[in-house]
């Protein structure tokens, strides 16, 4: 399957992904806790108009 590996990712970086994923797991957990706490004390985060999702949502509505 070597022909598919036209992009050399570097093995070191592949191994590092396990560490990155572990950190990401922590970040996501931390953010979830913060959001829950904020929601609990009545602070709600508002989605901005220019967010990525709103761009594509508009489309599905108009479809």
């Amino acid at each position: 399957m070597n022909y598919l590996l036209y992009l050399d990712p570097g093995l070191g970086m592949m191994i590092a992904q396990a560490a990155i994923a572990a950190i990401a797991g922590f970040v996501l957990f931390y953010k979830k806790v913060i959001t829950t706490v904020k929601a609990w004390i009545g602070l709600k985060k508002q989605q901005k108009d220019s967010s990525f999702d709103s761009n594509y949502e508009q489309d599905s509505e108009s479809k």
Binding site: G10, L11, M14, A16, Q17, A18, A22, A24, L28
Partner: peptide, 29 residues
Amino acid sequence: KSDTKESSEKTESKEARLSKSSQIKMLLA
């Protein structure tokens, strides 16, 4: 770091593994 380390060390025998759910978490963050 992983980039520069690689050039000095031969790590070819190792195989990197990452579960799908971990990869999704990494990308979500």
